[in-house]
Amino acid sequence: MQAAELVEGVLAGNRRALARAISHVEADSPTGRELQRALYPRTGRAQTIGITGSAGAGKSTLVGAVTRDERRRGRTVGIVAVDPSSPFSHGAILGDRIRMQDLTSDPGVFLRSMASRGNLGGLSETATGVVDVMDAAGYDVVIIETVGAGQDEVEVATAAQTTVLVTNPGAGDEIQSMKAGLMEVAQVMVVNKADLAGADTAVTQLRALLAIADLRAWRPPILKAVAKTGEGVPELVDAIDEHHAYLRSHEHGDRERRELARKQIVALARAALHRQALETAEHSGALAALVDEVAGRRRDPRSAAEILLGAVKREWGEAALAEPTPENAAR
């Protein structure tokens, strides 16, 4: 299927076209970029939710429970479930469909598993692109779920409008050691498996941490839920909805939307720059020579990096990488 055909299919709600379009975006192929260009103006309708938290927190089960609740509210749901690729083989086993068995035959749900593929800083961008395609396809809610709380995963989840941080009772140490940054990106916090002992302690700990975090007008609610039974899930979805309404109406909402846009542009540009610079470096042969020198202990890695950057700059022409000055910025 060609790009135009795929765009038409996605907009018409054709699931096969949607699936194929996602593959193109995921692969960052020329067709994928063309699709994103064509589909982006048709996005912005969906409510996007990022769900993150450490492995074993019960995120998949929670995504299932949230989806069921959204379906009861009459909304269609697209899900992007991201799992890590093996650092050795680059392969992956993606098992999220198992946790959402009952949802996979619901025509109002579309679940796509995604491997992180160890992209050069591009995971969050690729995943955001996939979310956009689902948005354009007309899903009312698009959930993106990531495993683990590494930099990449958190970034993926925060690319959504509302980020939900999932923890568990007894995860006290984990909460204590949580980077303030993670606290600040979450708009909703939920202690899952709240039927286990220690749920209230976890809530107290989160509250204490929030008290010292640098927050803006939105105060993240801290909720308890048992994803397995669905307990507390309607309240969670209510809280997500409240944040969504806040974004739509409040003056800060506009600021946050602009910030999200800025983050996306910068991240994509950074990834592209990174990739292109390395391609140039490898292509010019400068890298290979420097590798020999550093490996032979004839030159230190830092100097080598500077030389490499110099070589890239020369290839590209100094102007392209110069600090923006009023003159060249205007050009």
Binding site: G95, I98, R99, Q101
Partner: peptide, 8 residues
Amino acid sequence: EQPISLSI
């Protein structure tokens, strides 16, 4: 019903 185990 017991959900299907995820472990692989």
